[in-house]
Design a protein around this nucleic acid. Structure first.
Lengths: 132, 132, 132, 132
DNA sequence: GTGGTCTAGACCACA
DNA sequence: GTGGTCTAGACCACC
């Protein structure tokens, strides 16, 4: 399966974050199977026309959070899913994202009910791979 | 009504963002009425013991997003609320944040129900300034 | 309290690892108190005569594993201790170190009893800060 | 006695290290007797389906550390065991590994008793090749 | 060929 | 001043 990463130049998110998020998503959704390889650091860097160090930084973070594994001289592979972070740490991290969303909603003057509704729709879409 | 801003030192959010968010919320909730004045840049900087540049940056962003307006030599006032963005534009923007949250939830393997519950709690806390 | 980091040039451990290990130890032992600041990236880089990026890499890892926190424009501070990794993840990680020790012991032809004895001595020394 | 080497693909340890460690253990445990031959570089490479260079590198290190010796045109043989390092030197080296383990344990907040217990289990598993 | 580390130096955001 | 991101390019270990 060809993994395609897309970098948005004007985004507020740094390049390495965009790579992390997209691979994270592909792994979590099962689109990338366990044991499957991802493009080599240099190859992905060539494809995206960015510096190899930037890709390496993204991959290092993915190894640390348990999504990828590295084999010296071979490349990076999708790791067997495991629970890296403690429950409290996971809640702490998700609360940061929730706070950001709440702030954004208040700033844009969008009602909580609307947010919750759209969020639930998004979750449903996300959990049915067919609808992606 | 006296506007009280609280800066959390350990927060990941930059100070200027915290100011922007709190004033935004006060305006959205009606705590700060249209036409009312906010503290001067220097006064707020003294109160919070931070650099005036930081306050100025926050106020500039609030003017830009239509929450405040400036009257030369007089100070900053709560603007007659105008929606800077169209409804569809606002929804487009909030959907980006929602997608980020969903992505993060999938990554951390946290159930949608937990997210929705914590999100609603957070909204309640935030929209009642008394509980802050 | 002056934090002193020592880099051993000939070591097999990369520079950034040596920094991580030493700060980790200082924090875990309480030598560095919660809320205390560590040297700025540039300052430590100047002191050790290494590239700032190398220090930044070490600090980033310490933030990720929950030992430090960053405040934009201010610096890095010792974070309140928390349990970042799940129990299974912590055991997985310590088992890697244990396997290394076992391999090393077999290679050097040192009896298991000797290893266990020296290990226990080291733990005792370590748990009495006075003896450090 | 047929020497069987097992390479674990997903391991963090490089392949040549795994070969070195396993032969080292077989010699230490007496499974491989002094004077006995080990498979030729090419044969072992074929068996394990790896690059002959990798096997050659492992054998070179084993010769260097005194476990094997080479007889031109004949192959590699288990050497009369000599201790390359003095006792104090060996203890100094093993203490480095022990310190690393203690450091790691403190970092991960794992009790000394747990470490000692897992270490002993690991020793038992490793010294009985049958249980590997 | 692969990844891992390190340097030098640039530009931006934040205080 | 602080940290955060990115680039260019080097050298090493491993396969």
């Amino acid at each position: 399966m060809a993994l395609t990463i897309r970098i948005v130049a004007g985004s507020t998110a740094p390049i390495y974050r965009q790579i992390v998020d997209q691979i994270t998503r592909s792994v979590a959704s099962g689109e990338l199977a366990v044991g499957e390889s991802v493009p080599s650091v240099r190859q992905l860097a060539r494809e995206l026309v960015i510096n190899p160090n930037t890709v390496a930084k993204a991959y290092a973070e993915l190894v640390d959070s348990g999504f990828l594994e590295t084999q010296a001289g071979k490349g990076f592979f999708v790791a067997k899913r495991r629970q890296v972070y403690s429950k409290s740490e996971r809640l702490r991290r998700i609360d940061e994202s929730i706070d950001q969303l709440v702030n954004h909603a208040v700033t844009l003057d969008i009602e909580p009910e609307v947010i919750v509704q759209r969020l639930q729709q998004r979750f449903e879409k996300n959990l049915k791979p067919a609808g992606d």
